[in-house]
Design a protein around this nucleic acid. Structure first.
Length: 484
RNA sequence: GGCCCGUUGGUCAAGUGGUUAAGACACCGCCCUUUCAAGGCGGAGUCACGAGUUCAAUUCUCGUACGGGUCACCA
């Protein structure tokens, strides 16, 4: 049987990292076994439906390269792929369950249920099964008369249920612990607890991959599969992703949605690579940089860990750097230009040089504006800026050096890397000075900042002749006027 | 609280009844250098705790502690 997995998000808002990770593993399990990956929209909660959420799901999957073989947008043999379009199916199957005695209509009001929950005396252990033993004929008549009701699963009262999960192993629970959960709501929409079983079976899902928060309700689903006489699929429950404090990942940990991460300037490939390694490792292989294609080849559910994994931004940063460094220069240059064009406005600047120095230093795109603010703004000088112990440089020495440098630079016929480099080298030789000293002085004069992407030559190139010479002059003025 | 699950350095993790217990991020140091980064080299740091089984336990069993999940007409 061909492996088939599904990503089944509900359109309730943003694409959380946890959702994306589920989608990724579902995709990888299917692809690693030459199987199919399908997309199903679980929109059975009409209260939480968010406009535009479905589009965000399509967009995210597309950007990440997690292409599905069946889904609402492309169809397929097991459609429709949107649960709200499958209501008649859930109704049919719920009826079968009622007929076979595996489910029953329940007429309890939400108020009654709420009261029961608030009652401190009797420790609430789920629905009290008030309607479970109503005469089926009477119940059927009340349903026929249009009385509001839900359909509940009639759990076995004795015995135990066990299933084997690919990650967590065999899990057994006492049936008496299981609640008579609601399968169909009073608005005739199914609950997740019912729809997931019906759809996964009808859509021929072989591997049900989902977060470990579903582990405790899985026995109930197994009983449902049995009631229908359906084969139980392979379960793969995924460990949770938590924040650096060990708590469930949430807003206060930083960006936790795919869109936020993109906005921060993380590359989709890096995000995918990062979350692939959250709770999974390839085993003997120690490499950690893998493209999606490489993951498809090497991924195995065997390598999935049980313990919750902490989402570490440090590691994401490193991953992102790795991906930026490997980006083809043209693509990188375009990304940089998108950001810097608006910063420089009308001013000319050397994009190629800027992109070049940035490519080996940037952690994430969002850091760029702050990193290069000194290029579009003249920052104030201070004497300390010129101090560098290793180069034996200080403001006094810098003052002398810059004055030596100025005529040489002003006299340059062309302003290119080669000429600048050669000229600076020559000045060093003539003045018998260490390169680091001269370059350091010039770099600080041009940038007015101690740490810069790129050295003196690159900075001079990026600024262009005019701006570079103006700044050199300004630095000399500052150093002259420093001590009257 | 009941039920379920988990625990290898700060983090992600490999792995085994006998190993010097991989590797990566972060951290520290050194080298290199036209700064800082990047890169190279090196360092520190771990099997939660207590019993039991065993010639031998990080590995198997049981407890304890801690952490997490779940107990909705949400998924």
């Amino acid at each position: 049987m061909v492996t088939k997995t599904r990503f089944a998000p509900s359109p309730t808002g943003i694409m959380h990292i946890g959702n994306l990770r589920s989608a990724l593993y579902e995709y990888l399990i299917a692809r690693s076994e030459g199987g199919k990956f399908l997309l199903r929209i679980e929109d059975t909660d009409r209260e939480r439906y968010v406009e535009g959420a479905v589009e965000a799901i399509y967009r995210t999957l597309d950007i990440c390269g997690l292409h599905h073989d069946e889904g609402p947008d492309i169809g397929g043999p097991n459609g429709p792929y949107v649960q709200s379009e499958r209501l008649h199916l859930y109704g049919e199957y719920a009826d079968k369950l009622v007929e076979s005695g595996h489910a029953y209509p329940c007429f309890c009001s939400v108020e009654r249920l709420a009261d029961m929950r608030e009652d401190e005396e009797t420790e609430f252990i789920g629905y009290d099964r008030h309607c479970r033993d109503l005469d089926p004929a009477v119940a059927a008549r009340r349903v026929a008369s249009g009385e509001p009701h839900v359909i509940r699963q009639k759990m076995p009262l004795e015995g135990e249920t066990s299933f084997t999960d690919e990650v967590y192993g065999t899990i057994t629970v006492m049936n008496k612990e299981l609640e008579d959960q609601i399968l169909v709501k009073s608005d005739r929409y199914p609950t997740y607890n019912f729809a997931n079983v019906v759809d996964d079976h009808l859509m021929e899902i072989t591997h049900v991959v989902r977060g470990s928060e579903y582990l405790s309700s899985t026995p109930k689903y197994c009983i449902l599969y049995d009631a229908f006489g359906w084969d139980i699929p392979t379960f793969v429950h995924l460990p949770l992703i938590v924040g650096e404090d060990g708590k469930k990942l949430s807003k206060r940990h930083g960006s936790t949605s795919f869109d936020e991460l993109l906005a921060d300037g993380y590359l989709p490939e890096a995000i995918i690579n990062m979350i692939a390694f959250l709770g999974w490792a390839p085993g003997e292989e120690t490499r950690e940089i893998f493209s999606l294609e490489e993951l498809e080849a090497i991924f195995s559910a065997k390598g999935i860990n049980k313990a919750p994994a902490v989402f570490a931004y440090d590691k994401l940063n490193w991953m992102n750097e790795q991906y930026i460094r490997r980006l083809p220069f043209d693509r990188w240059r375009a990304m940089v230009k998108d950001i810097t064009d608006s910063m420089f406005g009308e001013r000319q600047y050397n994009v190629d040089m800027l992109a070049r120095v940035l490519q080996e230093r940037v952690t994430k795109l969002g850091d760029i504006p702050e990193m290069i603010r000194f290029l579009t703004e003249r920052l104030p000088y201070s004497a300390e800026l010129f101090f560098n112990k290793r180069a034996k440089l200080d403001a006094d020495v810098a003052s002398v050096i810059l004055k030596e440098l100025r005529p040489a630079l002003e006299a340059l016929p062309v302003w290119d890397e080669e000429t600048l480099s050669a000229t600076l080298g020559r000045v060093c030789d003539e003045a018998r000075r260490k390169k680091g000293q001269v370059m350091g002085a010039l770099r600080v004069a041009l940038a007015a900042q101690q740490v810069t992407p790129g050295g003196a030559t690159e900075t001079a190139m990026i600024l262009g002749r005019q701006e570079a010479l103006l700044r050199l002059a300004a630095a000399i003025d500052f150093l002259n006027g420093r001590r009257p």
